[in-house]
Amino acid sequence: MAAAGAPVRAAESIRVGEVNSYSALPAFTEPYRKGWQLALDEVNAAGGVLGRPLEFVSRDDAGKPADALNAVNELVTREEVALVAGTFFSHVGLAVADYAARREVFFLAAEPLTDALVWSKGNDVTFRLRPSNHMQAAMLAEEAAKLPAKRWATIAPNYEYGQSAVAEFRKLLSEKRPDIEWVAEQWPPQGKIDAGPVVQAIAAAGPEAILNVTFGPDLVKLVREGTTRGLFKDRSVVSFLTGEPEYLDPLGAEAPEGWIVTGYPWYAIDTPEHKAFLEAYQARWNDHPRLGSIVGYVTVKSIAAIIARAKSTDTAALVEAAKGVTVDTPFGPITYRAADHQSTLGAFVGRTAVVDGKGRMVDAIYRNGADYLPAEAEAAKLRPGG
């Protein structure tokens, strides 16, 4: 992929290395790329940062840690980027974070959700934008605890993200509801779900409620098979990410109804910040945004704010500047916490519905990420050496 966003000579620009799983999960990463391209244009049209344009040098990691490490190493050693950003899958993000720590390169992880990224495996140079598994699990557990269901089953992809999401949700819900019983779990391989046996095994356990963590094409297969076999009939379902348009749109009229989800109801957010973003995005791309669009856009805005505050691209200066920096986003201002390097970006929680033949989130409320994080002093103890 070619470099983007530099209207003057590349030698004068601030080069940012960007890696993501473009070929592995285009439903999320293509809108993400459109988001960062829009923000890059806005930053550079306003004069860049420190009087210099930002330039993104982008690579595809194919959803594989080895490919990501090769790409990042090339960006750092050959392209001489000042910092690195991006990644989607949690295991890929952890691999890049480890490389960044060893090479002392600033890394803004845009999308990986595992809590380990900023807690048990956190490091000095890695910061994370998206609300983590803990944050989204806490938002969902808050609603799940209100359900009468006592017998729960879980379905999640068998890799770092899925394992972390299930563990955190189970812990938080069990704390709120000690009467909960966990009766079944299924761990299909990411991107390769065999939905029939999964649905059959969950149904055989007779749960009253189900936690789903699958997404993308796996979610579509699970919804279709589960609907056909009546798995979701008269059962509550709580689901990570399902309200995101990149995953809900493909289901169309087949979208499940009444699931409690995190997501992004772009069509129902009535704030000045979001309206401005929506208008700019639609004018540029003639398409509606997905959550990936928000993540890509805010990634660039965060980088610009951090560099401006640092007044330098030196790694140590970037790290210090990122601690406590505030960034304006389409969801309102966020802050990157000094103690654990997690941003306070939140998520919308609502229910799925079919409206005019389309999958939609309804009754969605924005939950501020800061309200679902441990106090900074407690979070610091979760990090290595804490």
Score class of each variant (00 low, 15 high):
Ala2Asp: 15
Ala4Pro: 01
Ala11Asn: 07
Ala11Trp: 03
Ser13Gly: 10
Val16Lys: 12
Val16Gln: 13
Glu18Cys: 05
Leu25Cys: 11
Ala27Tyr: 05
Thr29Gly: 02
Thr29Pro: 02
Lys34Cys: 05
Gly35Lys: 01
Leu38Pro: 13
Leu40Gln: 08
Leu40Gly: 02
Asn44Phe: 11
Ala45Leu: 04
Gly47Lys: 04
Arg52Leu: 03
Val57Trp: 12
Gly63Tyr: 02
Gly63Ile: 03
Ala71Lys: 10
Glu74Trp: 14
Val76Leu: 14
Glu80Cys: 03
Val84Asn: 13
Ala85Gly: 05
Gly86Leu: 11
Gly86Glu: 08
Ser90Lys: 06
Val92Lys: 14
Val96Arg: 07
Val96Met: 09
Asp98Thr: 15
Ala100Leu: 13
Arg103His: 14
Val105Ala: 08
Val105Glu: 13
Asp115Arg: 07
Ala116Asn: 04
Lys121Phe: 06
Asn123Glu: 08
Asn123Trp: 09
Asp124Glu: 15
Val125Gln: 14
Val125Pro: 14
Arg128Asp: 04
His134Tyr: 15
Lys146Tyr: 03
Leu147Trp: 00
Pro148Glu: 06
Trp152Tyr: 10
Thr154Asn: 07
Ala156Arg: 15
Asn158Trp: 11
Asn158Met: 13
Tyr159Asp: 14
Glu160His: 11
Tyr161Thr: 01
Arg170Tyr: 02
Leu172Cys: 08
Trp182Ala: 00
Trp182Phe: 13
Val183Phe: 03
Gln186Leu: 09
Pro189Glu: 15
Ala195Thr: 02
Pro197Arg: 08
Pro197Glu: 10
Val198Gln: 09
Val199Lys: 00
Ala203Ile: 01
Ala203His: 06
Ala205Phe: 00
Ala205His: 01
Ala209Leu: 02
Ile210Ser: 00
Gly216Trp: 04
Pro217Thr: 14
Pro217Ser: 14
Gly226Tyr: 00
Gly230Pro: 01
Gly230Glu: 03
Leu231Asn: 00
Leu231Gln: 00
Lys233Asn: 00
Ser236Val: 03
Ser236Cys: 01
Ser236Gln: 15
Val237Arg: 07
Val238Trp: 03
Pro250Glu: 02
Ala253Ser: 10
Ala253His: 02
Ala255Phe: 00
Ala255Ser: 08
Ala255Arg: 00
Pro256Arg: 06
Trp259His: 00
Trp259Lys: 00
Val261Pro: 09
Val261Leu: 08
Ile269Val: 09
Thr271Met: 11
Thr271Trp: 13
Ala280Asp: 10
Ala283Arg: 14
Arg290His: 15
Ile294Lys: 03
Thr299Asp: 06
Ala304Glu: 08
Arg309Gly: 05
Arg309Tyr: 05
Arg309Phe: 04
Thr315Asn: 09
Ala317Glu: 10
Leu318Ser: 04
Leu318Tyr: 10
Thr326Val: 14
Asp328Pro: 03
Pro330Met: 03
Pro333Thr: 04
Ile334Tyr: 08
Thr335Arg: 15
Tyr336Gly: 03
Tyr336Ser: 06
Thr344Gly: 06
Gly346Trp: 06
Gly350Leu: 15
Gly350Trp: 13
Val354Tyr: 10
Asp356Ile: 00
Gly357Lys: 02
Lys358Tyr: 08
Arg360Phe: 09
Arg360Gly: 02
Asp363Cys: 04
Ile365Pro: 01
Asn368Val: 09
Gly369Pro: 11
Pro374Met: 06
Glu378Gln: 12
Gly385Leu: 02
